[in-house]
Each structure stands twice: as C-alpha cells, then as structure tokens.
C-alpha cells in the first residue's frame, strides 16, 4: 500500500459518502444516473467474488464489503425508496447501458489473464468500470446544471482514478515485476473519460461559479 493508492481508495470512499449524503439529506437523487449506479454494483459484484477465495488483508476485505453494500444500497434507494425514487430523472437517463455490459463482457472473454470464470469476471469488471461513468456524464450534460453534491461526487470519482494512475506509476518504479496491463490501460481510458468534466469543474471552481456543462 502506498500513499497514492490510499488516497485513491479514500477519494473513492468519499465519493460514495457524498452520494449517500446527497440522497439521505435531500431525499433526492436528481442528477444521479441509476444506470451508472447499477453498473457499479455489477462491477463490484463481479470483481469481489474473490472475497470467498482469497484473503489479502482486513482493509481489503472491509473495503470490498463496503463497496458492494453501498452500491446495492444506492440502487435500492433509487429504485424502491418511496421518496427518493420520485426525483429520479428517468427521461434524461436513457443511455443504453446493456450495450456496455455486453461489449465489455465479450472483450473480457477475449482479453483476460486466464480463461477461468473468476479471471473473466475480473477482466469484465475492469472494462465495465472504465465505461460505467458514461451514463452519468451524459445525464449531467443533458440536464446542464449540476448541483454541488453531484458535481463533487463525480469529481471525487475522477480523483480516485487519477490517484490510481499515480499508484501504478509508483508501483511500476518500485516493484520490479509490476506489470498489470489490463488494469492500467483500462484505468487510463477510464480517467480520460473524466477529462472533459474536470475541465469544466476547474473552470467553475476558478470562477467561483456554478458548475455548468455545455450542451
């Protein structure tokens, strides 16, 4: 564990806390893409199957359980909570996320570290995570105005990815055999997807104005 990875994990955790806080405090999930949240739940379920087969550390186990539980809780809230579900921007959240699932699963069948169920699901979760934010970004772009907590949620998610890239650079330099191409290339693609959002986030921060994404 290095400082970059810890910072990445913590900003990831923070993004989820911000999202839960927004939903809990405002009883509203407006601006949040249910499609993206469902993709994240699927990502965590597919990747953390190794909870049952490998033990890495107490930290690792706790974080995995937290990520699975929180992502399922968010999906539950958005779909079933009587107050929260009313604010869901269904008509704006029309990204065809099943194509992302299908496409990344086929990719995982072709590009994996080993042709076993667990390795295929792991690669699938990496590819799917890389594109899972797309429905969220499309929803934000469509709605134009982004409320503060939603903006911060996406910002922390992007920060988490940026820290992971620093972590890989650090590991590559310090661990002689650190080569994890699937995770690293997918991670760079994933971070690249945030570039546009980051650009407008910093502009609004610099001008001390409300975050607005161009149509």
């Amino acid at each position: 564990m290095n400082i970059f990875r810890l910072a990445g994990d913590m900003t990831h955790l923070l993004s989820i806390i911000v999202l839960l806080l927004k939903i809990y405090a405002t009883k509203s999930c407006s601006g949040i893409s249910l499609k993206t949240q469902e993709l994240y739940a699927l990502v965590f379920l597919a990747r953390y199957l190794d909870l049952f087969t490998d033990f890495i550390s107490v930290y690792n186990t706790i974080m995995k359980v937290v990520f699975i539980a929180s992502s399922l809780a968010i999906v539950w809230c958005m779909r079933l909570h009587p107050l929260v579900k009313r604010s869901y921007d269904k008509e704006l959240d029309t990204f065809r996320h099943y194509f992302l699932i299908g496409g990344t699963f086929v990719l995982a069948l072709v590009l994996n570290e080993k042709f076993t169920l667990q390795e295929i699901l792991w690669a699938f979760s990496i590819y799917l995570e890389a594109v899972a934010i797309l429905p969220q970004l499309v929803l934000l772009q469509r709605s134009g105005n982004v409320d503060n907590l939603t903006g911060q949620y996406v910002f922390f998610l992007g920060a988490y990815r940026a820290f992971y890239i620093l972590n890989w650079i650090y590991r590559y330099l310090t661990e002689p055999r650190f080569t994890r191409w699937i995770a690293c290339v997918s991670g760079i693609v994933q971070t690249g997807i945030y570039a546009d959002f980051f650009y407008y986030y910093f502009i609004s921060w610099k001008n001390n104005s409300k975050l607005k994404l161009p149509a």
Binding site: R5, D9, H12, D50, D54, I56, S57, N60, M63, K64, F67, W122, Y164, N167, E175, R177, F178, T179, R180, A183
Partner: peptide
C-alpha cells in the same frame, strides 16, 4: 504464481 499475480487492489 508470481507475487504480482495477486489482485491486491480494489
């Protein structure tokens, strides 16, 4: 398996 085969990241 090599040491970096373990998927220690989240």
């Amino acid at each position: 398996a090599e040491a970096d085969d373990t998927k220690d990241e989240l």
